[in-house]
Structures are given as C-alpha cells and as structure tokens.
Amino acid sequence: MSDDLHVERSGAVVTLTLNRPESRNAIRLSMYRELPSLLAGIDADPTVKVLVVRGAGTRSFAAGADITEFRDVRADAESARSYNEQVAAAERALDGMGKPTIAMVHGYCIGGGCGLALACDLRFSDTGARFAITPAKLGLVYSLESTKRLVDLVGPAQAKWILFSGQQVDADRALATGLTDMVADTAELAEQTYAFAELVAARAQFSVRAAKDIVRRIVGGQTDDDEATTLLRNSSFDTEDYAEGVRAFLEKRPPRFTWS
C-alpha cells in the first residue's frame, strides 16, 4: 500500500484516509488502482464492522481527481477509457462492500472525491463542507453508474442542477437535499462520526448487513421478497445474536453480540 492511502484501526472500526494533504487529497490514478484490493481485504476481515473514509486534515475530503496527471493518464480516448474503468472499479468496490461505510467529509468534496463519498452508505460533513461534481466544467461526461448514485440520493432535479452547473453545494443545502446525512462543527465532526460508527459496530451485524443488502435491492428496483430476502429474514432467527438480543431485553441489559 502506498503512502497516499493510510489505514488505521480502532477496535472494530477501520479508517481509510486519502493521504495527500498537500494537494487537498486529490486522488491519483495509483490510488484508484489500489482501492479495490484494499477494500476487499477490509471487507473480508471478520473483526472489522464499520469503515470510515476520510481525507487527511480538515481542509478537504478530496478536491477531486489529480488533474495534473490528465495529460498522461487521459491523453486520448484509449487511455481515458482505461482510467475511467479503474475509477469505476474503485467506486464499485466501495459501494459493493457488505459492511457499513461512512464518508467523513471535511471541507472540499469535489469531482472524484464526491464520487467516492457517494459510494459510501452515509456521509457526515462539517459546516464548511462543499460538494461538487464538475464534468461540465471540464468537457467530460459523468458515468451512468455514478449518476445513479447521485439521483438515488437527491432525486433527478437536484442531480441535474448539480451536474448542469458544476457549482459547489454548501453543507446546509447538502443536508436539505440528502447529499449529506449529518452536519457538525468542524471540531466535533470526528467525535460524532466515530460515535455513530461505534454504535453501529455494537449492533447485531447480521441485522446490519442484511439491512444494507435489502436496501440495495430496493434501490435497484426490487419491490417484493424473493428467495434470497426471505432466507435472510428467516435465518436471523437461527443466529446466536437473536438469542442474545432476546436474553438482553428480558434481563434489561445491553446485548453482547458476537456474529461477524
């Protein structure tokens, strides 16, 4: 793993940091290349329950893709196609994780940075957060897959406003439109983000991951239970966590869930 991506662990919560503060954490192609295998390893670790993604420092989550590379890595249609495939693979790996993911957004969350944040389950931001998706300012076209994530969050009209204009969305508007899920003062964002991450990590993980799977299916268009969702629900009754949850309720104590 390069120095541009930093992984740190605290109990069951892992933090993945985009670590280029000198460039407001602009994302290099090498970082996109590393992310799928890195995220797969985190997802496969049974002791990890929640992933927090953030940028180094408090000025920026990520100011976008590193445009200084574009003359080399997107010099023509062929290299641009390869670049786009690797960006899509990184975002898809984050979006496809079975475990809950939270983007902790300080400051600028622009372009490719916003793409990664949209691929997380939740976005918590500070009052200085600024979101923007900027293909219209560069003569590019946002992918359907990434556009769908935006539309799923804010709806088609707000998505058009964001994509047509390329303008920055401040924290208040981001909260009102659903682009972010919580806004806190800069000094309090980390505390509130990790408090929520620890809360989720303490819940029954079979329930949490099943909920994530079912929500993903609904967003994808599924409206009725099928064999897979019925099995998920029925299987929960056979887990030790279900038995522990009932015991804890009857004994009036916090549950101690163990499924991972």
Rank of each mutant, 00 (worst) to 15 (best):
G128E: 02
R20W: 01
R149Q: 11
D170I: 04
A171F: 00
Q168A: 12
P156W: 10
D126I: 03
W259T: 07
D95S: 14
R216L: 07
L29M: 11
D121H: 06
V13Y: 02
V52D: 02
R217Y: 03
A201S: 06
E244N: 14
E145Q: 12
D72T: 15
L140G: 01
A129G: 02
Q222W: 08
K252Y: 14
A77P: 00
F257Y: 15
R130S: 08
A187L: 08
I214F: 11
E8I: 06
G98D: 14
D121W: 04
T180A: 05
V154T: 04
L5G: 08
A75V: 02
Q222K: 11
D45E: 15
R81P: 05
R24K: 13
P156Q: 12
A119P: 07
V141G: 04
I214P: 00
R203D: 15
V50L: 02
A248E: 13
R203K: 15
T239A: 11
D4R: 12
Q86L: 09
V50D: 04
A171N: 00
I110H: 13
E198S: 10
T147I: 07
D126W: 03
T180L: 02
L163C: 06
V154N: 02
V246G: 09
S143H: 07
G128S: 04
V7S: 06
V13G: 05
V200K: 09
D45T: 14
A26R: 05
N234C: 07
R173M: 09
E34R: 12
T193K: 00
D238S: 10
Q222M: 12
A93G: 15
T186D: 05
F70S: 03
L16I: 14
I214L: 10
G113K: 00
A248K: 14
L189H: 00
I133R: 10
L179I: 03
L175S: 03
C114G: 09
V50N: 03
L150I: 06
L94S: 06
D66N: 08
D45H: 14
S235F: 09
G155C: 09
R24D: 12
K99Q: 07
K160I: 13
A174I: 02
V169E: 04
A243C: 11
K252A: 15
V7K: 04
L175I: 01
L175C: 02
L175P: 00
A88Y: 12
V14H: 01
F257L: 13
F164E: 12
M97A: 13
G115R: 01
T17R: 07
A117W: 00
D152T: 04
W259Q: 09
D72A: 13
R71P: 04
R92C: 09
Y242L: 15
I42E: 09
